[in-house]
Design a protein around this nucleic acid. Sequence first.
DNA 1: GGAGATAGTCTGTCTCACAGAACATATTCT
DNA 2: AGAATATGTTCTGTGAGACAGACTATCTCC
Lengths: 166, 166
Amino acid sequence: MTTPERVESDLGWALGQVTRTHIKHSEHVLAGLPGGPRGYLVLTAAREGTPTQLALARKLGVDRTVMTYLLDELVAAGLVERRPDPADRRARQIHLTPAGWGQLCEYARRLAEVEEHLLAPLAPAEQDQLRELLARLATAVPAEGNACQVAEDIKAGLEITEITRG
Amino acid sequence: MTTPERVESDLGWALGQVTRTHIKHSEHVLAGLPGGPRGYLVLTAAREGTPTQLALARKLGVDRTVMTYLLDELVAAGLVERRPDPADRRARQIHLTPAGWGQLCEYARRLAEVEEHLLAPLAPAEQDQLRELLARLATAVPAEGNACQVAEDIKAGLEITEITRG
DNA sequence: GGAGATAGTCTGTCTCACAGAACATATTCT
DNA sequence: AGAATATGTTCTGTGAGACAGACTATCTCC
């Protein structure tokens, strides 16, 4: 296929479209939550274990300087606590407060409704399949660091791969 | 399920993760193209028919004021042309130039390589499935307008739906 | 012909991500 | 122990980008 496909079959376009719609819907539903969709993800991630700020930032794919004021808001709202890590006094453990737990459950329910609407065009079995594939891909995705490396390699080695292929 | 799931099974998280990685890879590969990933999508969309600027903006999900300078760059690079629409003198038709065609094909090839890497964790059949599901969802996704309406409805009618359900 | 809608552009504003530095603490090496 | 290096967090500044609003030109419908 020397000629590119239609936009509708472009992976980047589809990803963007779906993600954008998901965020847009979420923002409305999560309007009351500090940090919006990202604040919600912080709560979700803080639910399991007591991650450090940096661990959270990495898992959620946000800059660590952003995580600072994102947590500031959540702390101010009384949804999470910063506790000093007894093992490493540089680090802070992020704990969910009871209030945070309550909000998390409440918003999780609303979000489930939104996603139900969003995925409605697909059959139930397909919805599960999409969720599963995305989850698997997201967890398997290369870490930040070598992600760029791969692209660099491709960019640099295009001619070579072309030759070895042809 | 009264308690929310782990982050790894959150649809929003997975979507964000995959989309972010895709964009990051694409940006490297499409660094030479004005507008980056979005410039690429403009070229792809301009390939079929001769859409107007507004049609492009809507299809790509960008603001119409953004489309203006996005096209400025592509025109300056000689990849597309703005031609007056003979039927509607307010509108401009976006035409791909021969150079634009060449660039599009070239970058489409590189992008295919990147996506190959990105989707590598999935089996080939699963890759096709994911593409298909995403494409179907993206094309079926409600238009900008009522997207927010749905969320509003859910937010406003939460209590009601709860009662009618229980 | 007039009222309202639509395509495109321009301007200003506001948010946000990110780089860089600063500081505290950990870890490793000699 | 002391020096060198790495890591976690915060703060500051800066630049890019999104978006609302106004404006012009044109179209459509009554």
